[in-house]
Structure formats: structure tokens, C-alpha cells
């Protein structure tokens, strides 16, 4: 059965592993250089005066496309696995009737399914693990400088680093197999698998992940560390605050400006044309006066966020959820094969 499974799987396997090998080779060549560039650049700017923010910004801009590309690869890989390895695995057999050829050799259905699922499923997880490892390693330097735009817990970076891609791949594969078994048509199964998987992948970071652990709630004074921008409405001169999480890499879920009475407000009632926050105050030190004035008026910002150091707890929890779902789907597949399939 192992031979047959491999014989049926080898083309698809070669395509994916070949692609991954090529990717790994590219990353292996460019990765050390990237780390080198970063280390030298950082050293240079430190010796020249210590402010490295310009260099960091430039380094990120230069490598952003590569960063996004490798991230995209690892984001797409589980979907591809579900689509091209999972969905056709059983449905193709049912479609062409070949399951009845195999089932009538001296082999039980359970064993047939176990070998098919085991071999292909493990290959799916191994492929994703390798890809995630390579991508995580390669982008570790860029990730450090990307935290402002791409928090490590946010939907892009978190989904594409560490161990969660393995969970995604296992789930996508099991989902594809299950759907294929139920609809018995490879193409339809692929379409449904893709739709469901994409929906899950959107729902997870937006609806579920924020609640995996209780978020940190804090009411803090308005200062540089939580300020993403101050916006002025030209019509009524009102000022609106755009907050960010206190530390780079934290994942801000929500923020709300409150006034001295603790009431939620949209606008901060302070003039930008005169007084402490007048336009002349763009320089850093005078900005502090502006913040002091806002604080004196009693404005605070309430925010809920997840600290960046929750990256690994979140990774393990989410991997656990996806793997458990995959196991449940697999269990269903076995039950269905034994009881319902013919």
C-alpha cells in the first residue's frame, strides 16, 4: 500500500518539494548576506552617532519585497497542500471508481486510508515545517525591523512564522480529504476546500486569535510611546488621536480616548493652532509640552493589546487548535470510510 500511495503521490510530492528546495537554496544564499548587511549597518550607524532609526527604516524598505514574498509563500503553502494533496486524495479514487479496485485486494479500508493519510499527511506537515523553518530563519533580521508595520502577533507575520504553518497544513490537508470524501468530486472538493480554508484563515486572526489569551487592558497617559499620529479636523479644529501599542511589536486590538471623567470621546479638545500644541511644536521637546497639556486636561487612552512576548504561547495554542481539528477530521474520515463509503 505504501508503494501504491507513493506511486500516486510522487508527481505532486516532487513538484512541491522541488519548489521548496529551490526556495531553500535561494534563502540559504541570501540569508547570511542579509544578516551581515544588517549587522554592519547597525554597527556603522552606532559608531556614527547612535541613532539608527534611519538605517532601520531604509533596511526595511530595501528588503520589504523579499520579506513579503517569503511570507506569501508560507501563507499560501498550506492552502496549496489542502487543495492539491488533500482534496483529490480520496475524491479522485471515488470519481474514477478505483477505490473499488484497491478495496478488493487483500487490504482493509482502514489500512488503505491509514497509509494514504499517514504518508501524505506527514509529507504535508514536513514540507510546511521545512518551509516555515527556512522562512523564519531568513526573515528573522527583517522581522526585527518590521515590528512597527507588521506586529509579530498580527495576521501576516504570525501566520507565516514558527510552528503554526504546520498546524495550518495539517488542517488544510485533513479538510481537503474530508471534503473530497463527502462530495466525491475532485474539482468541486478543491473549490470547497479553498473557500472554507480561506474563510477559516480570515476568521482566525480577526475573530478568534485576540481571545486565545485575555488581552492586556491599560489606561495610559498620552505620550510618544502610544502615539501613532495626531489628526486635526480642519472644520472644527478638533484633534483626534491615533494610538499604537506601548511597545513595538505589541498587537493592539483596540484603543479609545477617554476624557477626565473617564467618558469615551472621539476628539481631544485642545487647539493645535495656539497654546501648548501649536504648530511650532513639531520638535520633540516641545511635543512633550503638548502631551503634558493633554494629560493636564485629563485625557487618557484606554487600550487592549497583546504583548509581543506572547508570540510563542499563541503559536502553541493556535497550532494545538488546528492540529486538534485535523485529528477530528481524520477520525471522521475513518468512520465515514468504514461505515458510509461504497
Amino acid at each position: 500500500m505504501i508503494w501504491l500511495t507513493w506511486r500516486q503521490f510522487r508527481t505532486a510530492a516532487t513538484a512541491v518539494f522541488g519548489g521548496l528546495a529551490a526556495l531553500a537554496a535561494i534563502l540559504a544564499v541570501t540569508g547570511p548576506r542579509l544578516a551581515d548587511d544588517y549587522a554592519t549597518g547597525l554597527a556603522d550607524c552606532t559608531t556614527q552617532g547612535g541613532d539608527c532609526s534611519m538605517f532601520v527604516q531604509r533596511f526595511f524598505n530595501e528588503n520589504q519585497s523579499g520579506f513579503l514574498a517569503v511570507t506569501a509563500v508560507i501563507l499560501v503553502l498550506p492552502a496549496l497542500i489542502g487543495l492539491f494533496w488533500g482534496a483529490p486524495l480520496i475524491s479522485r479514487e471515488l470519481e474514477t471508481g478505483t477505490h473499488r479496485l484497491v478495496w478488493n485486494q487483500s487490504i482493509t479500508r482502514t489500512r488503505w486510508l491509514a497509509v494514504k493519510l499517514g504518508l501524505t499527511g506527514l509529507a504535508a506537515m514536513a514540507a510546511t515545517a521545512l518551509c516555515s523553518l527556512a522562512v523564519t530563519w531568513w526573515s528573522s533580521t527583517v522581522d526585527q525591523v518590521a515590528t512597527e508595520n507588521f506586529p509579530r502577533l498580527g495576521s501576516l507575520v504570525f501566520d507565516a512564522r514558527g510552528v503554526v504553518p504546520i498546524g495550518y497544513a495539517a488542517f488544510a490537508f485533513a479538510l481537503g480529504v474530508t471534503v473530497g470524501m463527502l462530495v466525491r468530486r475532485a474539482q468541486l472538493a478543491m473549490a470547497i476546500t479553498l473557500t472554507v480554508f480561506v474563510a477559516v484563515q480570515i476568521a482566525m486572526p480577526t475573530l478568534v486569535r485576540p481571545h486565545l489569551l485575555p488581552p492586556t487592558r491599560a489606561t495610559v497617559e498620552i505620550s510618544h510611546s502610544v502615539l501613532d499620529g495626531l489628526m486635526r479636523n480642519p472644520e472644527n479644529d478638533a484633534v483626534r488621536l491615533q494610538a499604537k501599542a506601548p511597545k513595538d511589536g505589541d498587537w493592539l486590538l483596540s484603543s479609545q480616548t477617554v476624557d477626565a471623567a473617564g467618558k469615551a470621546v472621539d476628539d481631544i479638545n485642545v487647539s493645535l493652532s495656539s497654546g501648548a500644541c501649536a504648530p511650532a511644536t513639531v520638535e520633540q521637546d516641545r511635543m512633550a509640552t503638548c502631551f503634558a497639556e493633554i494629560s493636564r486636561l485629563g485625557y487618557r487612552v484606554q487600550m487592549t493589546y497583546h504583548a509581543a512576548n506572547r508570540f510563542w504561547p499563541f503559536q502553541w495554542i493556535e497550532t494545538g487548535i488546528y492540529t486538534t481539528s485535523a485529528v477530528a477530521l481524520t477520525g471522521f474520515c475513518f468512520w465515514w470510510t468504514r461505515r458510509r463509503l461504497s
Binding site: 500516486q8 474514477t96 471508481g97 478505483t98 473499488r100 479496485l101 478488493n104 485486494q105 487483500s106 487490504i107 482493509t108
Partner: peptide, 17 residues
């Protein structure tokens, strides 16, 4: 397995890969 070995079955439309 022994029972399955004793019975051969050629399914409808004689499916092959």
C-alpha cells in the same frame, strides 16, 4: 485479510488507474 484474499472482485466498469 484472509477472507478478503479468498474472494476476488471485479467491480462494475472494471476500474483501473
Amino acid at each position: 485479510r484472509a477472507q478478503m484474499g479468498k474472494v476476488g472482485f471485479v467491480a462494475q466498469d472494471t476500474p483501473t488507474y
